[in-house]
C-alpha cells in the first residue's frame, strides 16, 4: 500500500512538498503563529553540518528546525 504522507526529514535537498498537518499540537501552535500553515509549500534547503537540524524555506521565509520538530510536519507524497 502506498503511504499517504511523508515527513519533512524525508525530503531531499531542494525538494518541495505541501504541508498537510502537524502532529504535535504545541509545535502546531508555534508553526502556525509563524505563518507555516497547512497547505504551505515547504522547500528543503539543506541539513545542518552536524545533522539534527534542517534549513527550510516556506513562502520565501527561511526557517531552522530540529529533527524532532521536522518529524512532526506531515507532507504530501
Amino acid at each position: 500500500m502506498q503511504r499517504r504522507y511523508r515527513t519533512l526529514p524525508e525530503l531531499k535537498a531542494h525538494e518541495s512538498a505541501q504541508a498537510v498537518s502537524f502532529t504535535d499540537p504545541e509545535l502546531a501552535c508555534k508553526l502556525t503563529a509563524m505563518g507555516v500553515l497547512p497547505g504551505a509549500m515547504i522547500e528543503m534547503v539543506r541539513k545542518a553540518p552536524f545533522g539534527d537540524a534542517f534549513y527550510v524555506k516556506v513562502d520565501g521565509v527561511r526557517l531552522a528546525l530540529r529533527t524532532e520538530e521536522a518529524e512532526q510536519i506531515l507532507l504530501t507524497v
Binding site: E26, L27, K30, L31, M34, R62, L63, A64, L65, R66
Partner: peptide, 10 residues
C-alpha cells in the same frame, strides 16, 4: 519553557 529550535533566519 518548552525548548524549540524553530527559528526564522533573517
Amino acid at each position: 519553557e518548552a525548548s524549540f529550535l524553530t527559528l526564522q533566519m533573517p
